[in-house]
Amino acid sequence: MGTNLTIGKAINAGLRASMEHDPKVLVMGEDVGRLGGVFRVTDGLHKDFGADRVIDTPLAESGIVGTAIGMAMRGYRPVVEIQFDGFFFPAANQTFTQLAKMRRRSAGKLSMPVVMRIPYGGGIGAVEHHSESPEAYFQHTAGLRVVSVANPEDAYWMIQQAVRSDDPVIFLEPKRRYYEKAEVDTGVSIDAVTPMGAARIARPGTDCTLLAYGPMIKTALQAAEADVDHSIEVIDVRSLSPIDYATITESVKRTGRLVVAHEATLTGGPGAEIAARVTEECFYHLESPVIRVAAFDTPYPQSRLEEHYLPDLDRVLDGVDRAFAY
């Protein structure tokens, strides 16, 4: 059963399926109800599931995450929306000190099946705090699972997998790709779908592995097409915590090269961690150092500079060139 959906609509359909499947699933956040969220990702849910299950919260991110923790203790599965990446930070305390640690603190007696949906990343010409890529903070925090989707198919299934997870999941939505459309097969069983934690080879190749996730997958695929001199394998890592190193190292051992591209800043970013691990596991197979293509170590700039700040097709190709220069 195929349906043509945008990423935004696919998440919406996945949320709807989750709410139909399990009456304990709730949606909470600022403007998620009547408005359907500022990106309309929760559109129609308030109308169909009511205000008890689709909660327009007061304007307080710490409050949203903190009360979601309490709801989870009472047996609910809250899916909270943080309106923009830069507005996560007021909720940092509840997320890092409470949500991530509750299972460990309770010696496994408490689970935190909370999903935190965050539209993230740049490229939409926005004002400050609306274009950030905070994934490294989450990846660095034990107890959180971190995933990002790059296409409607993953958007539809991974949101449902995230809701069914008994661990807290940070669900990163590439806001500049919300309107990308593709066919989604909604007819299969969720049990037959690739697990949320597995990486996916988005394009096979033999000369160099190009790893990305979320909004950068489209750019990575374009770069692989554009480089007619080399056969580039693109991996969509999908899960940043945990990371599916089996798929990555199998690929790198075949290609001998790895380029990691992300919108997050360079230093201490996801690419640094992946580079270190791949160097350990694939040292004798590497033809070049692992190359990182990332945003600069500066605050996200004013939007008129974001085309220079964000790794684009040319910057990714430049990274690939650097890998082949060895």
Partner: peptide, 10 residues
């Protein structure tokens, strides 16, 4: 109004 949420929600 806070975007779509009326005062009663705050």
């Amino acid at each position: 109004w806070a975007i779509s949420e009326p005062l009663e929600r705050q």
